[in-house]
C-alpha cells in the first residue's frame, strides 16, 4: 500500500466523510510491548528503528531472518524466537496499518 505523505494525508482527512474518520483498528495487546523500545505506536526512537508503516511482507520476512540468525541483530534475534508465526502475522498487519 502506498504511504501518504503527511500533507496529502491531512488533505485526505479533511475531505473524508465523517465515517472514514473512525480511528484505525485498536492495537492488539501483543503489539503494545513493542513501544518500550520502538516508541509509542512504533514511531522509532534514537538507534531503534521506526516500525510504524513497515511493509507487511517485509516485516514477516525480517522477523524470520532474525529468528534464524540470518540478519545482523543486537537483540531482535533473541526477541524474535519468542513469537510464533500467527503472532508475527498479527504484529505485521498492525504495524503496516500505522502511519
Amino acid at each position: 500500500m502506498t504511504r501518504l505523505r503527511p500533507a496529502l494525508f491531512g488533505l485526505a482527512l479533511a475531505l473524508a466523510p465523517a465515517a472514514a474518520l473512525a480511528q484505525s483498528a485498536p492495537a492488539p495487546l501483543i503489539a503494545l510491548s513493542c513501544a518500550g523500545c520502538h516508541g509509542p505506536a512504533g514511531a522509532g526512537e534514537g538507534s531503534v528503528p521506526r516500525i510504524a508503516g513497515y511493509d507487511r511482507e517485509a516485516f514477516v520476512q525480517s522477523w524470520a531472518a532474525f529468528r534464524a540468525n540470518e540478519r545482523p541483530a543486537s537483540i531482535m534475534n533473541r526477541i524474535a524466537r519468542g513469537f510464533n508465526d500467527a503472532e508475527v502475522a498479527e504484529l505485521a498487519a498492525y504495524f503496516a496499518g500505522l502511519r
Binding site: E45, S47, V48
Partner: peptide, 8 residues
C-alpha cells in the same frame, strides 16, 4: 539502544 529504550 539502552538510551533509546529509556526515551521510548
Amino acid at each position: 539502544h539502552a538510551d533509546a529504550w529509556y526515551a521510548s
